[in-house]
């Protein structure tokens, strides 16, 4: 359970931060919904990258 929670919290954190950034971006520049769409996808990518890093996939040689 500890490993599962660790990896899932990494993924969720990436998506949440991306979504918040996108939402704030839209609020500031009134570009809704494009900021949300773009930053949520980027947040998803960052979350997957976090998971891969903390699982030790693709470590620097």
């Amino acid at each position: 359970m500890a490993v599962g929670l660790r990896l899932s919290s990494e993924l969720v954190a990436g998506v949440v931060v991306g979504t918040i950034l996108g939402w704030g971006f839209d609020r500031l520049l009134s570009t809704s919904p494009w900021g949300l769409i773009v930053f949520m996808l980027l947040g998803f990518v960052a979350g997957v990258m976090n998971v891969m890093r903390s699982a030790g996939v693709g470590k620097k040689q």
């Binding site: 954190a13 990436g14 931060v17 950034l21 960052a46």
Partner: peptide
């Protein structure tokens, strides 16, 4: 951009992990 989001998401996962484990 992805690296910046990844950096900003650190405190989120750092805190949620401890909290979720103890709560669950």
């Amino acid at each position: 951009v992805i690296e910046v989001i990844s950096f900003l998401s650190r405190p989120v996962s750092h805190s949620v992990r401890l909290f979720a484990n103890m709560l669950a």
